[in-house]
Amino acid sequence: EIHIRTNGEEQARKVYKMLAKRNYDVKIEQHNGQWVVTAS
């Protein structure tokens, strides 16, 4: 499982799309105001 911390919604969405293209199961979560993308 991969966790990627991003500094904002826009970046989180870019990372989300990139990983989704590679057939990862991707989730975006917010932790303490930080956007974290989780891929498995």
Rank of each mutant, 00 (worst) to 15 (best):
V37K: 00
R5F: 15
E10G: 09
I2H: 05
A20K: 14
E29Y: 15
L19F: 08
Q34L: 09
T6H: 04
I28T: 02
Y24S: 04
T38F: 07
R5D: 04
E29T: 12
S40K: 12
V36D: 03
Q30G: 04
I2A: 03
V26M: 02
R13M: 11
W35V: 01
Q11R: 06
N23E: 06
K14P: 01
V15R: 02
V26R: 01
L19Q: 01
T6Q: 03
N7L: 09
R5Q: 08
G8Y: 14
I28Y: 04
N23K: 08
I2P: 03
K14S: 06
Q34P: 01
H31P: 02
H31L: 13
N32Y: 06
D25M: 12
R22Q: 12
S40G: 06
I28E: 00
E9Q: 06
Q34A: 08
N32L: 07
E10V: 10
R22I: 07
N7E: 10
N32K: 08
V37A: 00
H31M: 11
N32R: 06
R22M: 15
V36N: 03
D25A: 11
K21W: 08
V36L: 10
T38Q: 04
E1F: 15
E29Q: 10
Q11I: 11
K27G: 03
N23T: 04
D25P: 05
V36S: 05
Y24N: 04
E10H: 07
N7W: 12
G33H: 06
K27R: 11
A20W: 06
Y16T: 03
Q11Y: 10
K21N: 11
E10M: 10
Y16A: 15
N23L: 08
G8L: 12
K27H: 10
N7V: 08
K17H: 12
Y24M: 08
H3P: 02
K17D: 15
R22W: 14
H31V: 13
I2G: 02
Y24V: 05
T6Y: 10
Y24A: 05
Q34S: 07
V15E: 02
V37H: 00
E10Q: 10
N23G: 15
Q34H: 13
H31D: 10
Y16S: 09
N23S: 07
T38Y: 08
Y16K: 06
D25L: 13
A12Y: 01
M18W: 15
T38V: 13
R5H: 11
D25R: 12
S40P: 05
Y24R: 05
I4A: 01
V26F: 01
I2D: 02
K27F: 05
H3A: 08
I4Q: 02
M18N: 06
I4T: 02
A12C: 09
M18P: 01
A12W: 02
Q30E: 10
E10L: 10
N32V: 04
R22Y: 14
R5E: 07
T6V: 15
H3E: 11
Q11M: 10
R13K: 09
A39L: 13
K17C: 14
R22H: 13
Q30T: 07
T38N: 03
T38P: 00
G8R: 13
Q11W: 10
Q11F: 10
A12N: 00
V15S: 02
N7Y: 12
E1M: 13
H3T: 15
E9F: 14
Q11P: 03
Q30V: 13
L19A: 01
V26T: 03
Y24H: 05
T38M: 07
V36E: 05
V36W: 14
W35Q: 00
G33K: 04
D25T: 13
E1K: 14
Q34W: 14
V15T: 03
K21S: 12
A39N: 04
E9H: 07
R5G: 04
A20S: 10
I4L: 05
H3Q: 12
N7S: 11
K21F: 08
R5Y: 15
A12G: 02
R22G: 06
N23W: 14
V37I: 10
V36Q: 05
Q34T: 10
H31W: 11
R13G: 04
Y16E: 05
I4Y: 13
R5S: 07
H3Y: 15
T38R: 07
D25E: 11
